[in-house]
Amino acid sequence: MVKAALVSPPSFSSLVQQFFTEYLVSQRAMSPHTVASYRDTFMLFLAFAHRRLGKPPTDLSFADFEPDLILAFLDHLEWQRHNSVRTRNLRLTALRSFLKFAARRDLSSLHHIERALGVPMKRFERPMLGYLSREEMLAVIGEPGSSWTAQRDHLLLVMLYNTGARVSEIIAVHIADVVLGVSACVHLHGKGRKQRSVPLWKSTAQEIRAWLQRNPALVADAPLLPNRDGQTMTRTNVNQRLALAVARACAAFPTLAKRHISPIPFVTPLQCICCSPG
């Protein structure tokens, strides 16, 4: 009788490599942003484990994945790196995803993995977001100026107000994503490669037409709202332009100076019933 050969369980380092190269990319087809977030989590965790255990990443095993180590890492993120509880939980989500992946490939480590998976998410209170009144919003949007930058910024704020989209969605809009027919709309590309179409108000569509007429060099695959170099605007750039618009609006609404205004609460309750600003 021929005895079956014993197969050694995969090493921790090989499972980490398979998790990123095969599972996340090939099998799950995760977005590059998600893969990058998981990668950053592992770089932080492996560096922390090295300092705490004195072991390089190549010497780690699932026996080292004690709940105390994971909890200490999460506390380090929150208190030493000053990460929010939301970020702390996102890092834990990445670790849990890897542990569930490894549990199906290293049966000999199931006990250690099960204990590590018992680390809970941290609960936190979600702050209530405020919003701008219609009059305040229109004051922030203001009137389009004569310069190229002022006209772009005005269209940027109008589209954020019209669509209620994330900043990342608005700055990712290309000329080809805008439909200016009878039923004008814009195609938005959201997180996780989710796509949706949002109707455009008549006034917004008219402003986009005027913008394209002033910028005939913009081609189909170009950003609708580029920076001076013709490249996609950054989130920081959008926040800076919004801050300038809020500062101007403070002349009519001084109370805006005491409020923290970001693109997140750019939608007013009126927009939920598609109330056009014009």
Rank of each mutant, 00 (worst) to 15 (best):
V16C: 07
L53S: 05
N239I: 11
F42E: 10
D59G: 06
L242S: 04
E136A: 03
G181Y: 00
I208F: 12
L132A: 05
G181K: 02
C185F: 08
I175C: 13
P144Q: 04
P277G: 11
H187L: 15
R86C: 06
L107N: 06
V179D: 15
L69I: 02
L107M: 08
I141Q: 04
S84E: 10
L218N: 14
M121I: 07
A245M: 02
F62T: 05
V7T: 05
I208D: 14
E125H: 12
S13Y: 01
R166M: 05
A103T: 01
P67H: 01
A5Q: 06
S203V: 14
S97V: 01
E78T: 07
V35I: 09
D64Y: 03
P9K: 01
R51F: 10
T163P: 00
R166Y: 02
A176W: 11
M43A: 13
N83D: 13
K258D: 15
Q271I: 08
F42R: 10
Q151R: 11
Q151A: 11
G145I: 00
G192E: 12
F101P: 03
I113K: 10
I170T: 11
I171V: 09
R81E: 13
H154V: 00
T58N: 12
Y38A: 03
D229T: 09
Y161K: 03
S262R: 01
P127H: 04
R196Q: 07
T149L: 13
P199K: 07
A94E: 05
F266M: 15
K258C: 13
Q271R: 14
H112I: 00
H50T: 13
